[in-house]
């Protein structure tokens, strides 16, 4: 493989501080498909598009604009691996580019620390960058093991796709970006009818989020999938730990392993379950691992 594409990772908080196994999977797999990860200083929380934004939208926008300004100074493309981070950074860009008065107001705040948001940086989710800039075939070329016959029930969640006028990723009702990626990895994507349903994490209620998660796992079970393949760390907390909560509170056991798509890629690239951090999950993926040849 020739020259690698240098990208700056915006790790956010959930991955490095809650699910480092996802960060591990990214660090291990991207170099194999021609991406060089260039870590930089200066980022903070994106900040989170649910609770912090609910607290104060202007502060939310200010912090996001600072992160974007930090990225602009570096001059490389930025990738995020978290649906929450991409949601915040893309929406902040959209709002600032849409409204020059708002941009001036925010830039006045950034001036206090000698920073400015100009609107020049490209921020994409890693899967989007792979599809649009490298082409999905680079994934196929990196594979060493066959995941043939492993059925993956894909879960999109919300923020990777919506709102499509901001995210520019796919048809928000009939997406196929993750199906294409899972097929390139060599596994079989299976349709589950709740693949676009919210995991419920942002709903500030004791019962509703669990009901949503349950509905999703009923659909995964019906689909006959061996595991769930997902892209969002917040969904992951709803689904991995969430299955234990459903078992405890509702007496229903699904026991369906939840795998971050880049962990799946790692397995196909010949990495072991430990090398992609699967041993850190509550629901063990043994049955999936047995099928890998």
């Amino acid at each position: 493989m020739g020259e690698k594409k240098k990208v700056v990772p915006f790790w956010g908080c959930m991955m490095p501080l809650k699910y480092p196994q996802m960060e591990l999977a990214i660090r291990r797999t991207l170099p194999n498909i021609g991406i060089e990860i260039v870590d930089v200083d200066g980022f903070t929380c994106c900040p989170d598009p649910i609770y912090f934004k609910a607290r104060d939208k202007m502060k939310w926008l200010t912090i996001a604009a600072r992160n974007l300004a930090v990225a602009e100074e570096i001059g490389l493309d930025v990738i995020t691996m978290c649906s929450g981070c991409i949601s915040t950074l893309k929406e902040a860009q959209y709002l600032l580019d849409e409204d020059p008065k708002l941009k001036d107001e925010i830039n006045k705040k950034l001036k206090k620390i000698d920073k400015e948001y100009k609107g020049t940086v490209s921020v994409k989710h890693a899967v989007v960058m792979i599809r649009d800039e490298l082409g999905i075939d680079v994934v196929k070329k990196s594979l060493k093991k066959s995941l043939e016959g492993i059925k993956v029930g894909i879960h999109y969640g919300c923020h990777l796709l919506k709102p499509s006028q901001i995210m520019h990723v796919d048809d928000a009702d009939y997406p196929n970006i993750l199906e294409d990626l899972v097929m390139a990895i060599g596994a079989t994507p299976v349709y589950q009818k709740e693949s676009l349903l919210c995991c419920g994490k942002g709903c500030m209620d004791a019962d509703i989020p669990l009901e949503m998660t349950e509905a999703i796992f009923v659909a995964i079970e019906e689909s006959g999938a061996d595991c769930m393949g997902l892209i969002c760390p917040t969904c992951f907390s709803s689904f991995d730990l969430g299955q234990l909560m459903i078992a405890r509170k509702k007496g229903k056991t699904f026991n369906i392993p939840v795998i971050y798509i880049f962990q799946l890629l790692g397995l196909a690239q010949g990495l072991t379950a430990e090398e992609v951090g699967l041993h850190k999950h509550r629901i063990k993926a043994d049955k999936v691992l047995e099928k890998i040849v």
Partner: peptide, 29 residues
């Protein structure tokens, strides 16, 4: 939501996660 204004990150940094990062061979925070 209060962590962000105090520490700059939304998740509390625990010694458990630092240990886990070390065990996985990930860089220092």
């Amino acid at each position: 939501s209060e962590n962000i204004g105090k520490t700059g990150v939304s998740v509390t940094v625990t010694s458990a996660v630092r240990r886990m990062r070390q065990e996985l061979g990930l860089p220092e925070l």
